[in-house]
Design a protein around this nucleic acid. Sequence first.
DNA 1: CCGGATCCCGTGAGATACTG
DNA 2: CAGTATCTCACGGGATCCGG
Lengths: 145, 145
Amino acid sequence: MDVSARFTAEEIERARRYATAIPPADLDPRIGALVNELIGRVADKWTMMILDILAGHGELRFTRLSELVEGISQKMLTQTLRQMERDGLVVRTVHPVVPPKVEYRLTGLGLSLGSAFCGVWVWAAENLEQVEQARQAFDRRAGTG
Amino acid sequence: MDVSARFTAEEIERARRYATAIPPADLDPRIGALVNELIGRVADKWTMMILDILAGHGELRFTRLSELVEGISQKMLTQTLRQMERDGLVVRTVHPVVPPKVEYRLTGLGLSLGSAFCGVWVWAAENLEQVEQARQAFDRRAGTG
DNA sequence: CCGGATCCCGTGAGATACTG
DNA sequence: CAGTATCTCACGGGATCCGG
């Protein structure tokens, strides 16, 4: 893919700071469909946030997780954790005690996905301001136009 | 963050292949909330897919985009593109001709976000098999247990 | 008491038909 | 061609209930 025809050197340089690998568009279309499906599964904000929290804290209990993952409902936490367990991203350890104690931690696979998402977190942190400015400019245009 | 206490060397090595930057958990909590909000906005599958398609094709018309973004409805395409335009990720160019011609292309900001997501696409492609195996194992456990 | 399953309801996604 | 309008329905959130 020759991007130089479509973007300025500055834009490409900006992008290159974040680039980690080859562009995905050039995949076998057969596999592409499967990849899309998997992306649809893991690329939601709750999965990303849980991944991030678990990567930063190691092993966590259910209630502690629900406190740390800002704004999540128990239902979605349960549901997302179950999906992540099924996909091999987290392990769920039940300690047969009273009161119940259930701990969650990332697998190696989960950790690697967390690392893959890391670039997105950094992008968000570094470009907060720019996005905010773009939004204000857009709203101004919409208001006057 | 010392991850060595929680993961094996092999797991860390696996993660490191995908790692692009520092973990996000160590941010100023004030900014953290804003980052979460922004992540919630951009980290959905349609945004990711549009980003990917536009990064691979340059400039595209509405109908062509709807063909290339597998499974998207016009409504979600319109909505997502509008959001992305507002956030400064794409530019929308209307050519005043009959029939209408509207073209979309990434901005530098959009390209950089696409690059940040690149690691996730690669992860998905490389770990398809593992996730599938994890799912089968999980379902088998659920079935027998 | 903790973890989570269940029920009820509102929002928002998806399909279809229509318009400038 | 590039959207908007409308309908329907599934999914997400909140409250409540339950098993260990």
